[in-house]
Amino acid sequence: MSFERIVIFGATSAIAQATARRVAARGVRLHLVARDAAKLEAVRADLAARGATVTAAVADLDVTTHHAKLLDEAERALGGSIDAALIAQGTLPDQAACERDFTRVEAEIRTNFLGPASLASELANRFEPRGAGCIVAISSVAGDRGRASNYVYGSAKGALSIFLGGLRSRLHASGVHVVTVKPGFVDTPMTAAFKKGALWSPPERIARGIVAALEHGGTEVYLPWFWWPILFVIRHLPEAIFVRLKI
């Protein structure tokens, strides 16, 4: 599969940047969307210098009512219909703060689930009649099971995984691809506060997996691959045992 025109939401995230760099040198057209203008310009210039044709738009993706307009803009900027979209915006909630204040939970669910789900829906409705297009969204292994240490993030990502799974089934016959990316621990600015160990990966490794999934029609990919067996075990532990584990 080859992709000419790609739109990236949450383009200043480390995983999005690394993914965009992998395809930039092929001379693709990229349209980047992110919230922070200064960061977005730094990323845009980098990708342009690497050989891509790059446009950018500043937007708050939490505002789902603007998504249709953002996609219209993206199509205009790319000079044609979108071949692939990467939905990469996200935040890592402060779990303890969320436990005290449910308005924070609502905000996190909006950023990590409602926003991505809305974009995926809007893209699906445009891709379906064309019978082409690829939607890639970054979920997380954290969404596979609720854990005490990060169940707010986990529930948003879990909801997103289920949403994308349903969307994939709906679009299967139409030829539109939906890829759910489930990274494990990734060393990015979002996780700067964590102590890093052997299970941590650089964003470049996740990016390599994303591009491979895009090219070879992946569906649900754990990145790196070793998270699949880990999560297989975690998903299948009996709840009576799981609740006692401090993970």
Binding site: A42, V43, D46, A49
Partner: peptide
Amino acid sequence: AGLDRLIAFDRASGVL
């Protein structure tokens, strides 16, 4: 190491 972006690369003059 996280400041690893290109800002401009003029392929005609070789100024990076």
